[in-house]
């Protein structure tokens, strides 16, 4: 029997408590697509909070998904530290040359005052406006990069690996600055009206560093930060695998995990059980080429594997759907979740 329709907030809240809502919640991680809705370039779009608010509201109307995503772009955080950002006509603004030329420059890095940063203010203002306009009916997902993953944009991957392995003193110094920034930034978003925070931590994935190294670095940092963030947190490994560190992730205090398309949802569901909700894992890159048949098949397969019992949000595997994914595919994803995601889940 079909259950009574719920609001996005009720739907998400119930699934996060590992119960079955009316249907599987859908999180479409749309950022740049808002520029297309408004007929703006990506650079123009991200220049004003009002653009992002309008873009998010129009897309939510169009696709009927269950979250608003005021995330601008990953490089926003290093931009706040003073780094260069390179805009693209068809992709997310990217960090330019690393902010720090060398490990020895870490001492020169100045902490960012989150409330005084003009760069960060745009996103805080977007959250405030979204909250105001939707009156809290649709969950707003804030976002931070983990202190442990931010150095990829501050230093570059290669120098950062060398820092982790050979210079723990400077590593600890950098983590001190980044942890304080991360917690302040997350809490500022929650104060502005975000309902939860996505904690993007790709470096912690076993795809990037060994499990043992995660245990003594990224895991400890995540545990410390998440305990200080005054709201719910979902950890995102941005396409990276997480099964080998599942036991530790469950101890970080996160309530959900965004999972990779390279891991099997059924195995993930079995592993995380009712301890953590799963978010994912449609392959955003391949989604560019999907037709209605492949879209419906992929959505159905994901729902059958992960949705029974609740604790599952259908989404992509990275936390940002590429600009090249066409509107028709997004419409198909939204239609497929309505068709196959009604609880109780059946193989129809």
């Amino acid at each position: 029997m079909k259950r009574q329709a719920m609001t996005p907030k009720e739907r998400v809240s119930l699934t996060l408590s590992h119960q079955e809502p009316d249907r599987v919640p859908l999180m479409l991680s749309l950022t740049m697509h808002g520029a297309r809705e408004l007929g703006l370039s990506i650079q123009e779009y991200f220049s004003k909070a009002e653009h992002v608010v309008e873009g998010q509201l129009r897309m939510q109307q169009k696709y009927g998904h269950d979250f608003l995503n005021p995330f601008f772009y990953s490089a926003l955080e290093v931009e706040a530290f003073g780094a260069e950002v390179i805009y693209s006509e068809d992709g997310p603004p990217n960090s330019g040359r690393p902010l720090l030329n060398d490990i020895s420059d870490i001492g020169k890095l100045h902490p960012v005052d989150v409330r005084k940063s003009g760069v960060l203010y745009k996103m805080l203002r977007a959250i405030e406006l979204l909250k105001e306009k939707t009156k809290g009916a649709i969950p707003i997902m804030g976002s931070v990069t983990s202190p442990f993953s931010l150095p990829v944009m501050q230093l570059g991957f290669d120098k950062y690996f060398e820092l982790i392995h050979f210079n723990r003193k400077c590593f600890d110094q950098l983590m001190g600055i980044n942890e304080s920034f991360c917690v302040d930034w997350a809490n500022a978003q929650l104060s502005a009206g975000a309902d939860a925070i996505g904690y993007a931590d790709p470096v912690s994935s076993p795809t990037i560093i060994p499990r043992e190294l995660y245990a003594e670095t990224g895991f400890q940092i995540a545990r410390r930060c998440i305990s200080k963030i005054r709201g719910n947190v979902a950890t995102n490994f941005a396409s990276g695998k997480c099964l080998p560190i599942a036991g530790m992730i469950m101890q970080t205090g996160t309530m959900a995990v965004v999972v990779s398309a390279q891991e099997d949802l059924a195995e993930l569901k079995k592993t995380f059980g009712k301890k953590l909700a799963l978010v994912g894992n449609l392959n955003g890159l391949e989604m560019r080429r999907w037709n209605t048949e492949t879209t419906f098949h992929s959505v159905k397969e994901a729902i059958l594997k992960a949705a029974p019992g609740g604790g599952y949000i259908l989404s992509d595997n990275h936390g940002e759907i590429p600009f090249q994914v066409p509107e028709a595919v997004l419409m198909d994803v939204a239609a497929a979740v309505k068709r196959y995601g009604q609880y109780p889940i059946t193989n129809q």
């Binding site: 991957f157 290669d158 690996f161 060398e162 982790i164 392995h165 076993p206 795809t207 990037i208 560093i209 060994p210 190294l213 695998k241 080998p244």
Partner: peptide, 14 residues
């Protein structure tokens, strides 16, 4: 195959 991490590949090469 998922048995090692990227940091180990990088450090070995260096």
């Amino acid at each position: 195959k998922g048995n090692l991490s990227l940091s180990q590949v990088y450090m070995s090469g260096m």
